[in-house]
Design a protein around this nucleic acid. Sequence first.
DNA 1: TTGTAGGCGTTATCAT
DNA 2: ATGATAACGCCTACAA
Lengths: 341, 341
Amino acid sequence: MSANHPTIKEIALRLNVSISTVSRALHDHPRIGIKTKERVKELAREMKYEPNAQAIFFKQQKTAVIGVVLPSIKEEFFSQAISGIEAAATQYDYTILFGQSHDDPAIEKRVIESMKRQRVDGIIISLSKNTNKISYLKEIETAGIPIVFFDRVPDQPDVHKVYCDIYKSTIDMVNWLYSRGYRKIAMINGPANLTASRERLEGYKQALSQKKMKVDMRYFETTDLTKEGTTTAMKKLLSLKNGPTAVISFNDYVHMDATQYAHMQGININKDIAFVSYSNLSITDYTAFPPLLSVEQYPYGQGEQAMETIIRAMKGEHEKDFFYHEEVPTTLVIHGTNHIR
Amino acid sequence: MSANHPTIKEIALRLNVSISTVSRALHDHPRIGIKTKERVKELAREMKYEPNAQAIFFKQQKTAVIGVVLPSIKEEFFSQAISGIEAAATQYDYTILFGQSHDDPAIEKRVIESMKRQRVDGIIISLSKNTNKISYLKEIETAGIPIVFFDRVPDQPDVHKVYCDIYKSTIDMVNWLYSRGYRKIAMINGPANLTASRERLEGYKQALSQKKMKVDMRYFETTDLTKEGTTTAMKKLLSLKNGPTAVISFNDYVHMDATQYAHMQGININKDIAFVSYSNLSITDYTAFPPLLSVEQYPYGQGEQAMETIIRAMKGEHEKDFFYHEEVPTTLVIHGTNHIR
DNA sequence: TTGTAGGCGTTATCAT
DNA sequence: ATGATAACGCCTACAA
């Protein structure tokens, strides 16, 4: 069961011409006899010859392969993102080598080393939530493999990255709640080490102060994104006297756990307390308690953008110390109160 | 920004030894002088030398890459499956080239041709729901690239495949409904051309006849798996006089659309009509109307199994006309009526 | 118009 | 104990 692919060498042999003639004929080289061209192409078709991309790329010292490293493909955000990456890759004749970190920095590193050994032409990565040191990634970039971060990006400026402005979305979100009359706005944020969390927190604080409201840290909780962590956070919020009338969750998964728990505690979701969130999952409308509003982050578009960016980074048509920082837009998607429940 | 990886040649040059000496030293060849070995390894470390996998595989005429073609990574079933594939692949030092068909046979073919050009060592595929002719796949296999189908597999016996026994699960499902007293059992099945649909239908018929119940085709509807198709099917079932008391949906996505519509029509889900389904999505417990029961098909395990199978197929330690047919188990997961609603 | 030869990085087979 | 060389499939500069 070992592969048996015809080569130009075999074609040359059978036609009694040189290998280069076959190669040129196949490439429609101008100064090859028209009848030689025909004979070569005919036999190539007959033998079902297909150029060996591996050999070509080996010679060219490239692979036409982009490594894509995601925390977890199970999350809809990332499955959408990789679809965008794939679509753009296809357009530029690149293929995708796939790997997951499962939010484990050690696995993440292993995956990336493997991709490096495979000599991928570039790497697109959304960092694991537990990753803090990315020095080895900078080394890989120095070694000549460009890296583009997306969504979960490092804070530093000396990297290529694609992300959306969560800070601004958060301000919009708070303003939306404010305009609907909510004043006691709580937040269940993600782990503090994430840029994503910091941006939410900063936007939250900024929006409140813009509205001359004091930031009450009793209303601020965090979760490690597990069901237990979220439940604990929600529990604390519900135990407050003079508790919140609105809750902003880190994302729709946190939202689902938070509302599930709150419901069990007798809260009338979106009536007693308004819930808003980020991600805008497609199953939202089938869930028991959709958020009133969710921030759409266009993962598909972010994926496409990441691919475009790495293509540019690979071309290297930029200053040696220039880094792409591509910001992609977000939208507040209002689900309203008139859902199926 | 072009890659600049050190090679054994450079090491050899700098050490004034031959290329082969470097190669052997790096491989701990027994009869290389211990101090030469040290010098080589030292410099290799210093230069951050890493063997070029592309070159090695090129020489070995392999790639250590497995192509994985899925209909849509957005479906949780497939995102779980690819995780299983990846886990097993890592164990065997294979990497994953990723592609989606989006249920379009033309795209599917394009993806596979591209993988063939890349000389993947094998292909794992779950067929697009609209694919009917797989002759070109057989050709690829003849050319030396083994193919393993999983979940959405062809009916023919002359292919390697991994799948679960939906026929039997369906019988179990009907029996479960029967034991709970349901007698008017409807089914919203998938497209007739799918093996998955045929197995459901056959299991359904078989179970009913085993219980001496007549098969009433008024209770049998199909959907093209779109929201509209499912809504239409559900509508027909609800319009029947002496309508069903239980509905089996093709999968949890169909279930969600069916129950959403039924709810809007005033049906009390799982009270007026019992709903059961296949897939056992992880978000089930967050949905407005979870099925009473869902068939767990262990996509992660199926993925692992598919990888194991293709490894065996690649080794070719089997008769030329022997094909693996690996059946993986299923489980009925009971969600009960005591969910959050 | 066609052929020859070198090279991409590595390993393996022969020498020495 | 180490070196030289061929080979994997393809492309291309240079010859003829």
